[in-house]
């Protein structure tokens, strides 16, 4: 695990308070309230799991945080700054990253070039027609990230021929590029084999301590291993929040979530 590749930002924890703070966020799709009055606070470096059945509003929550959707009401603060109306790329420049529930990769390019583009996106020279010295260091950073998600053997392989699990790992590498401070993982373990899950847990727990993340995860075992706190969602609301063992043993949670989670 090459942790040096992920630069430690000087001001990671300088702004006292939270890495991410949501106050009264709701999102309506017509008459459907996908999110209702969400309050959420994540400390810098905190690792949080979000659990909830399908349609609970987890992905919508991520879309509101990243700026893909504008919330219907409420405010979002990122590292102490009100970003509610900021476009997506401004939030990325502040250290926010995400992965997608359904991989959004560049299928015509190699693994290396996919990660290189992610590194390039948060650096200068996005329009350069020339390759420069700086590109070599970005390429080096890309290679290190590929190693970090255990894909070095496939670095020059086109993404279109990667197996599903490998594409999921690449999703993670794209989110690790630049200097992330808070990463949103949308069901990274879904559809992975047990070995790939073990790999994933290793990658997540091996991240440098200053990088916080929020992970959506159906598999309770994975969630409990990678998160310090757990937030339960149901029907667009936060329904319970606490330490993993509290959530696991909560009778209400067991009735509501684990019940239909094991159908």
């Amino acid at each position: 695990m090459t942790t040096e590749t992920i630069k430690s930002p000087a001001a990671a924890t300088s702004s006292a308070g939270h890495a991410l703070e949501l106050r009264g966020v709701s999102k309506l799709f017509g008459a459907l309230a996908a999110l209702s009055d969400i309050d959420l606070a994540i400390r810098p470096g905190e690792r949080r799991a979000v659990l909830g059945s399908n349609g609970a509003g987890k992905t919508t929550l991520f879309n509101c945080i990243t700026g893909d959707f504008l919330p219907s009401t409420g405010g979002i603060r990122l590292f102490g700054e009100d970003v509610t109306r900021f476009p997506a790329q401004e939030r990325i420049r502040r250290g926010l990253r995400r992965t997608y529930q359904i991989s959004l990769l560049f299928n015509g390019l190699t693994v290396r070039d996919n990660v290189y583009l992610a590194c390039r996106g948060v650096s200068r020279g996005r329009f350069s027609f020339l390759r420069s010295r700086a590109d070599d260091s970005l390429m080096q950073a890309a290679e290190d990230l590929v190693a970090a998600v255990h894909l070095s053997d496939l670095i020059d392989t086109p993404v279109s021929v990667l197996a599903y699990g490998q594409q999921r790992q690449l999703e993670i590498a794209l989110a690790l590029a630049g200097a992330p401070r808070l990463i949103l993982f949308d069901e990274p373990a879904a559809g992975l084999s047990p070995t790939e899950r073990k790999d994933l847990v290793e990658i997540l727990t091996g991240l440098p301590a200053h990088i916080g993340y929020v992970i959506i995860e159906h598999d309770m075992d994975v969630a409990l291993r990678v998160a310090e706190r757990v937030t339960m969602m149901h029907n667009g609301r936060i329904f319970k929040e606490g330490l993993p063992e509290e959530i696991e043993n909560d009778p209400e949670v067991q009735a509501l979530y684990l019940g239909d989670g094991h159908e």
């Binding site: 790329q89 990325i92 959004l104 299928n107 390019l109 070039d113 390039r120 996005r126 390759r131």
Partner: peptide
């Protein structure tokens, strides 16, 4: 193979992800 060309291929393959990575 230069940054611009690779970014263009990224735009071809997945404009939404390119925007999410900070590209215009």
């Amino acid at each position: 193979r230069a940054p611009f060309g690779l970014a263009l291929q990224g735009v071809r393959d997945n404009p939404r992800r390119m925007a999410a990575l900070g590209f215009n």
